[in-house]
Design a protein around this nucleic acid. Sequence first.
DNA 1: AGGCTGGGCTGACGCAGATCAGCATCATCT
DNA 2: AGATGATGCTGATCTGCGTCAGCCCAGCCT
Lengths: 243, 243
Amino acid sequence: MNTHHTPFARKLGAFVALSDIELALLDQLHSRRRSFAARRDMVHEGQVERSAYIVASGWVCSYKLLPSGARQIVDFQIPGDFLGLRSVLFRTADHNIEPITRVQASEVQARDLLDAFNTAPRLAAAVLWAASRDEAMVVEHLVDLGRRDAKQRMAHFLLELGARLKLVGLGTNEGYACPLTQYLLADALGLSAVHVNRVLRDLREEGLVSFQQGKVIFENFAGLVALCDFDRTYLDHEGPLMR
Amino acid sequence: MNTHHTPFARKLGAFVALSDIELALLDQLHSRRRSFAARRDMVHEGQVERSAYIVASGWVCSYKLLPSGARQIVDFQIPGDFLGLRSVLFRTADHNIEPITRVQASEVQARDLLDAFNTAPRLAAAVLWAASRDEAMVVEHLVDLGRRDAKQRMAHFLLELGARLKLVGLGTNEGYACPLTQYLLADALGLSAVHVNRVLRDLREEGLVSFQQGKVIFENFAGLVALCDFDRTYLDHEGPLMR
DNA sequence: AGGCTGGGCTGACGCAGATCAGCATCATCT
DNA sequence: AGATGATGCTGATCTGCGTCAGCCCAGCCT
């Protein structure tokens, strides 16, 4: 695997055999690099937004706030992920986006993408694939919230995150570094922070996963997969347009 | 409003000013009409799928099954809605699709769509808009499951459904006909059927909505909106590509 | 140093909603 | 007419998770 490419190129390249020319085109999208401080909203709901981003380093979350003050995190973005692709299409952003750590991201105008597609049409299919994968993840998240209990949710979440990170070279089947706090986990999983803490302790004491000092370590990968029926096909399925 | 067009054309036409030619093109997509019996899966997870559908009449639901036997309904499709657009892109369907009533739907090959787009490029933007709206609904559903209690969920759900039905001429601010059973509601809202029943009773006794004999009737629309902070902008927002 | 803040952690208690069990109604089938 | 199966409805009880309240530690201010 080519490790000197950006996480974005690496992710797409893992499922679509891309030529060197195509890979180079993808890397070129990263010319307009910007940096964002942790904890300061990049985009807030209702804001008029004209460009999307590709995350180069750091972690981001997209969330919705309810008037009650409750927050629901819809998704986390890690290096290689698109950010705000939809708010380019719609006139305004429909949710908030906040960096969790310091973030480096490349601004991508709609025009840049279209130019790249014209030069290398297969890239369009690849990007479409990435967008579909993101949607499949949201659906899986919905199933989590609707029909899995706290322990299964957590297990599923940690496994999915691991699979995504592995794809961009930031994780292995042993574990990965993870900057998320228990509060962030709570807001993503629809739980209270208190309960997140308890669930993590349970999982640790059962020898399944540990999550301490910013590191997720899989102690019993198979056991964890069994606990929540994790099926990763939705993450790395290749489509008919890819061949 | 033109009522002699299909629900699909009507829905798109409500937010994108479409010419008669464009409307006619949309209606032409409905040539390959098929009929499906209630309760028999149209598509099941993992099935290889090559065509999408546009619902002409009847109700459909897309859901995921867990090995535990639990079911999570991701979304309902009503007349005018696309069905399985994503499973055309991916090689296989990633969830099951089941008609709730008898359903008439038009089969749409990827080729038909592309042809229509070539003739009338504005249609592509309109269809993209519809797809984005569907995704926004899934996100809103996710917030429901993660951060709203049972009563708010139900209120939000009934209001959203009402707004969607109104768009295709199947509902008003007074109410609408709805073939969903309490079991279906439960599987969509992440509740038990027993609790759905109680919540419906509560809402009825508080004079907010009633849902009986297949009819949803809004007794106090404003009160219901206030209860769950319903904000319908995500349903009928027009995008920058529409002008 | 001392205070402040953010994060992890824990016990006691309460409640929303699940589960269990059962009844009533209606449509369809035999 | 009786049997069967959906669907709606209800009370009693149980439980997963939230809420409240508080402690501890580490890092960062002043």
